[in-house]
Design a protein around this nucleic acid. Structure first.
Lengths: 246, 246
DNA sequence: TGCACGCCTTGACGCAGATCAATTGGATAG
DNA sequence: CTATCCAATTGATCTGCGTCAAGGCGTGCA
């Protein structure tokens, strides 16, 4: 769409990690300067809650390193994860005063925060930013819709396989397409269950089943080896044309 | 956020219905002129498919009247609705060439379409538009996340009650809050099932159960009467502080 | 008037996944 | 080396919802 993507910072250098699609040589350096003035960093330990749903939220933020989750909780304690935040993902909603979801660090986490008021002012005066945010939000919406199909219509086995495939794709060196790969699970069984709309027992049983069938292997509880990625994706129920994302 | 909301057209007049939060007296008339040049209208009959997933899509659009759905279908025919498009909702993604979901008219439908290329050009030159779209996309993302909780963790009864509450809230004259109301179901049992991640039989049974308990009453198959809205919302599993949206 | 077709309802039954409960295994502390 | 703790596994049983199947009801067409 825009040949001139906003350079709020370069993902590679980790300085200010708002993701952009392609490095662009024509970006204005002063956009970065402006952001420098209103940003600060916060670190969290694995398991720490970053924000509780309903809290006043006077910043927006971007994940620098680590993984966080967005979850919703019902009165009786049922929990559903509704977002998985990976490095460069954006948190918080310009124009809203309170948080709508719990945000929890599942690994050690560093976030780059922007005070909300100046960030919003800057959005108003810097069109690239809202265009970039729109693009990112549309990506998230697509991911949410894929997730809805998983929650509403997939079996437990398909759910697990889908999650493992997502994690494998993003974590492992799968450049070429099919083949072997291995990665660390960033989520506990319970967190996986909250992601998938299952119980942790069902998650555990399905992982054991995949192991028994030789589709995956475990090293410890948290490290997964996938012998043949194609055999895993066969289990996901998805169309078999493995779209490789940019 | 922006005190100066884009006036692409006034929802009330139905001319060009991109929704905006508040009527703004200071809008530039030429923004509207610019849109006039690239827009056109299309009508569909109930049941007609507007776009198939994978189709080349050279426009974006906004719903003028009627209701449309976004659905995803798996190879074996399992279907999940992932979006419900009501008047003033936006369809299509700037920057993407092909449709990601099936779009189907569930009632007679009129859409206001914008040719994509000129629309994108205008987005680039008119910051208000991307800001307005960002706001709308964030609203959709919130709705999708609420929906994920429903799909992942709610029981069949809670799902039905939630859907009826959503339809009642938007359709009926519930200004004051609680009380009686009635409305027409815009969806068939099967479409409700696809929305909720259930089978149509389960939908039918749950509706019968709510009827038996006097929480709702049916007139014909498609008209619902809710005697006491609070008794319905008690069944949704949601927190009981009925947030009234702007 | 009757038949066919679509949509909905209702019943009977089975199973995937939830629930309840016990055990294992790996990590850390004493 | 043993005790403690917590995440994960595994087993036994239960149940909500899916599946399969048989009507019911309204609408349109011959």
């Amino acid at each position: 769409m825009s040949q001139h993507d906003l350079k709020l910072g370069h993902p590679r250098c980790g300085d200010c990690p708002i993701r952009h699609r392609a490095v662009c040589a024509r970006c204005e350096p002063n956009e970065l300067e402006a952001l420098d003035a209103i940003k600060y960093y916060r670190s969290f330990e694995a398991g720490q809650t970053v924000i509780w749903s309903g809290d006043r939220m006077d910043f927006v933020a971007s994940v620098v390193s680590g993984i966080a989750t967005l979850t919703q909780t019902m009165e009786d304690g049922r929990r559903q994860m509704v977002g998985l935040l990976l490095p460069s993902d954006f948190v918080g909603r310009p124009g809203r005063a309170t948080a709508a979801y719990d945000v929890t660090a599942t690994t050690d986490l560093v976030m780059c925060c922007f005070r909300k008021k100046p960030f919003e002012d800057m959005m108003a005066s810097t069109p690239h930013i809202s265009q970039r945010l729109l693009e990112m939000t549309l990506d998230e919406l697509d991911a949410a819709r894929e997730w809805m199909l998983l929650l509403g219509r997939k079996t437990a086995r398909e759910k697990i396989a889908s999650l493992l495939a997502i994690l494998a794709r993003r974590d492992a060196s799968l450049k070429a397409g099919a083949g072997a790969c291995s990665f660390d699970l960033p989520l506990s069984r319970e967190e996986m269950a909250d992601y998938l709309g299952l119980t942790l027992e069902t998650v555990s049983r399905q992982i054991s089943a995949l192991k028994r069938e030789g589709i995956i292997a475990l090293e410890g509880k948290r490290h997964i080896k996938v012998a043949d990625f194609d055999r895993l994706t066969e289990q996901t129920g998805d169309d078999t044309d493995g779209g490789v994302l940019s």
